[in-house]
Design a protein around this nucleic acid. Sequence first.
DNA 1: AACAGCGTTTATAACGATTCAATAACCGGA
DNA 2: TCCGGTTATTGAATCGTTATAAACGCTGTT
Lengths: 337, 337
Amino acid sequence: MATIEDVAARAGVSIGTVSNVLNRPQAVAPATRARVQAAITALGYVPHAAARALVAGRSRTIGLIVPEVTNPFFADLARGAEEVADDRDLTVMLYNSNKAPGRELRFLGQLESQRVQGILLTPVNQVAEALSDVVARGTPVVLLDRGSGHRNLCSVAVDDRVGGELAATHLVERGHRHLAFVGGPFTVHQVAERLAGARSVTDAAGARLEVIETTGLTVAAARAAATGLARRPAADRPTAVFCANDLLALGVLQTVTRERLRVPGDLAIVGYDDIAFAAAAAVPLTSVRQPRQQLGRVAAQLLFEEIDDPGRHGHRQVVFQPELIARASTRVTAPAS
Amino acid sequence: MATIEDVAARAGVSIGTVSNVLNRPQAVAPATRARVQAAITALGYVPHAAARALVAGRSRTIGLIVPEVTNPFFADLARGAEEVADDRDLTVMLYNSNKAPGRELRFLGQLESQRVQGILLTPVNQVAEALSDVVARGTPVVLLDRGSGHRNLCSVAVDDRVGGELAATHLVERGHRHLAFVGGPFTVHQVAERLAGARSVTDAAGARLEVIETTGLTVAAARAAATGLARRPAADRPTAVFCANDLLALGVLQTVTRERLRVPGDLAIVGYDDIAFAAAAAVPLTSVRQPRQQLGRVAAQLLFEEIDDPGRHGHRQVVFQPELIARASTRVTAPAS
DNA sequence: AACAGCGTTTATAACGATTCAATAACCGGA
DNA sequence: TCCGGTTATTGAATCGTTATAAACGCTGTT
């Protein structure tokens, strides 16, 4: 593969001049510049990023580690981050930790070894001890969606408690006095917060909120819970459920529909995340939407702030407010006769 | 940040020895090795990947460009490729072209500039001219899922025609004589092939196959088609539909269910891709599954084959066979009275 | 004719690792 | 005691680029 030296030889100039053509073209006489450009295209010269990174001391990339690439939440977040990175001509290296702490650790090491300018990370569990080392050695890190507790790091997240409040308020305002929360396990911080938010609203409104814990956040996990609900006598049944995410909500919708309940007539449903399927469901689903792409943008901005001026930079924990998207699954219907 | 020189100084050895500890520990006396290791951990030394890549002439990574990270097909494919790369201690750099030719081009350039050992690519449209340059300059490329026509490149793909045959055979064997194919646009190679496969089977069996073209492969796109179907008089209605993907199939399922048809009693449904939702649908969906992870594995293996011995390597086009997963949506039911 | 000033170009020293030939240290055997 | 043969360690060259200080060639002034 052609090197800068080959280009220089072909253009009859020194390598310094070629480097100038590449990095500060205005400093090179137009005729020379043209000659060098010609040599570059003729040889198909592609600069060697590693050599550049070596002199510069850092590479022109930032790292992004997410627990699930498949999840549109993180895909959108990545888009947001990329957008900001593009403005600086930086590449975002995307890694999928798949919720495996081992993978997270490995990628962290790789990114550090590549001397990335900074790292955006959704930590798998607690923030690894290894992370503190990375930060101590000088690579800025911004936490995504989790671990906002860390005061010595920047982080961005969405307020799940507010999300819970939005959902519950929406239902209470529509006259529901007996709600159910479906979700779990409660060890997942997000789930617990969403419940807490809902609880605060129902308590204040004097409404009833029963809690149905599931083992996970999948369609399948919703089945058991929903079957139980649907088979209760109407008087004993909540008139609305708030699900910790849209998959659960879809599961509930499917199951109770099969059990011949009408949605929203017999049971109103609110989901969380506003995935693409929410709008496309048999009964379009009311859901709580998080500003995903903005989350990524702001995270990247915080990171660059720290990169640009590590001294003056003060760590910030940015919390976004979610938004409720009302659809048919909570529409007020004429009371059944 | 600590360099190899700092480590050498602290351990009282030369940098050559430190390098040996890192790359061929058995060549270093145990006592020295221990001393160096201690220095490494004490200083938190992390080797500089760019410096390594510079001497080596290539980095320890391969690139993977997919059109949609959100799509589980590509996520699984990535996992397969990673698995193989891990065995060689290589990192997979994942890029999401988002079907934008501009992004694809940019990433291709970045990967080449990083001197990756090879590239796995799902080309957005036709194979870009730029790609030939990349290949000509010596970076091996394997095409994923598309562009198998190129005889001068390796590629892996799944036989969509066989997929169509599987689906149609399954339905014909269950006694269906009037089928419908739902999908589109037919400019998408995969869609056209699936239809062609189905057609060959129905023709051979003397069954009827009507074609309902949709504008896209989404739940929403299925609505119109399904509504039309459901409202036809039973005699004029196909007894089974084969959808070009699972999203369409789910849309059809939802819509015809709402129109009071029973699945599979009144209408059997076969999807394609076997996404997670297929099994979790109201009526679990029969679907054609592609060996996604294996696709990634084999692609990576082909790439490494070429990397290891570019001279002897002969380009191959590997085509996998899909598999039909039978579920409730095509179960044979007692004929309605 | 000498020189200051300017715009271009060049030579060279980094950057942080790996590699490999050369050297040093050590051992047992003659 | 010296030697051949290991085994361990070192020093220097090298990778491809950027940055920088010095050199160069003109022009216009004095």
